[in-house]
């Protein structure tokens, strides 16, 4: 489902004398349906960079990224937009939303983008918020005013509200209490059970051990060290 072959990437800083910083070389990994793969490696090794490239947020230098059969490297922007809408879910560490949009609408948005009727999308969004223990009184408020943990759970609800075939999870259990951490891990397990391919970064080692089938150490793809 998620297949990365010989991927490389460097940043060219045009405004700092054209400095070229190679950040990744020869990255390869594969995540099959129903499988959860964890990325490990010390801070700065390139876990986030790799995730961003798979999401289409960073442009790949060379190599190949295939998501459910679609090649991302060199793809038209709208092909990536469609992939994100239909196939590739994403839970980031940070919630980026418009002020004043109610939490329930933030969570329902992926469904609305897929054309679900408003009532149905909201019902499913409310179901997710309920599972993630967001107090009902907050559903109609903008998450910009929420605590860090609440924002994180809104983000998770949004990522899991549609059964995406592929999921990218960036620290999904960070800043969660034990009870909510358990909910999230259950959600991940359910997603695996329905056949989703999941790639994640987990600093929470017990969580990683529980949901990940394999680990990939990105240090191997870091140009400086590989050389």
């Amino acid at each position: 489902m998620i297949s990365v072959e010989n991927l490389s990437k460097s940043f060219t800083l045009h405004n700092q004398g054209g400095t070229v910083i190679p950040v990744m070389a020869g990255a390869s990994l594969h995540v099959g349906p129903g499988e959860c793969v964890g990325l490990v490696g010390q801070s700065g090794a390139g876990k986030s960079t790799l995730m961003r490239m798979i999401q289409g947020n960073y442009l790949a230098g060379a190599g190949s990224i295939r998501i459910a059969g679609t090649e991302l490297v060199g793809a038209e922007p709208r092909a990536i937009t469609r992939l994100r809408r239909e196939t590739l879910g994403h839970v980031s560490q940070f919630l980026r939303v418009l002020p004043r949009v109610p939490a329930v609408d933030v969570v329902a948005e992926p469904l609305r983008a897929l054309g679900s009727p408003e009532a149905e999308a909201r019902a499913r969004a409310e179901c997710m918020l309920w599972r993630l223990n967001i107090p009902r009184g907050l559903w109609s408020l903008s998450p910009t005013t929420f605590s860090g943990g609440e924002q994180q759970r809104v983000n998770i609800a949004r990522g899991f509200v549609h059964p995406f075939p592929c999921l990218l999870l960036d620290e999904p259990t960070a800043s969660l209490d034990a009870q909510n951490r358990e909910v999230v891990l259950t959600l991940i397990e359910e997603a695996k059970a329905r056949g989703a391919a999941i790639l994640g970064i987990f600093h929470d080692a017990p969580a990683r051990d529980r949901v990940c089938d394999r680990l990939v150490d990105v240090t191997a793809f870091t140009p400086g060290r590989a050389a």
Binding site: T12, H14, N15, G56, N57, P77, I80
Partner: peptide, 19 residues
């Protein structure tokens, strides 16, 4: 430069866009 909005903003390729 043109491309996906978040990609252009987060990983700009052109010198002017970076600026």
């Amino acid at each position: 430069e043109q491309g996906l909005t978040d990609q252009v903003l987060d990983d700009p390729q052109d010198a002017y866009t970076q600026l």
